[in-house]
Amino acid sequence: MRRFRFGVTARIVAVLVVLGVAVFPLYWMFVTALSSNSDLFADQPRLTPDLGQFGVFVDALAEGKAAGWLLNSLIIAVGTMVISVGLGIPLGYALSRFSFWGKAVLTVVLLFTQMLPEALMVVPLFALFRRFELLDSLAGLVLVNSAFVLPIVALILKGAIDGIPKELEEAARADGARPFTTLTRINMPLIAPSIAATAVIAFFHAWNEYVFAVTFIFNPELQPASVGIANFIGELGTPIQTVMAVAFLFTLPAVAFYLLVQKYVVSGMTAGAVKG
């Protein structure tokens, strides 16, 4: 009996520790944003937010640039999500159900591209984008982010479709459904959790993406928030409160979106068990 209790207590403590490690930086960001200059450099760090400083958030948004950055990030993230999931569903279906020439090679190549460092691709992509006049445009960023997240999306969805019994599709075919109808009417409802999971993955990949955004975008008006926040860090001085306020605003929508779909994500991830 005592051992059982000890186990429960230990587990609660462990959960609290992990939660603290995960949540504390977010809280610290919030507190730092709401600190006065003297608090920032005081001997005793301030542990509770000074709500009287709430104007930082208003200032950060009113200054104009931050809101634009967040909007750019949102456009890129949603665009990437739509394209990569829209293409990933048929691709995953084809990889799972059809046999065609080069399928094994294609699957392995998809895995490889997922593992190559993205920064290696910056130089060739830069040359390519200059030729196609995709530099300095949000559409270019959507394309490149989609290209990098599509393999993960397709492989997760392939795994999910692998888990659906073939008999269901055979029944649909017996009723006269074509492959495309089978995909949209039979398979997609069944793998909805995995689709949600891949949507989250694609969204966050593009939302957090920095390398391509900082390289391919020159116009400050088109910068996403990840680049904008980093540019605050200056040689002469860094407006710490503003950085933290914008960073907090940058984190919030992402957390909100994740909470909205998180109940699907866990089951979706394990259903599409991709190894590697």
Binding site: F112, M115, L116, P117
Partner: peptide, 15 residues
């Protein structure tokens, strides 16, 4: 680009 090629080879070995 040359560094990139070396990087690709190293990554391929690890992958």
């Amino acid at each position: 680009a040359a560094i990139g090629m070396v990087g690709v080879v190293i990554s391929l070995i690890v992958i």
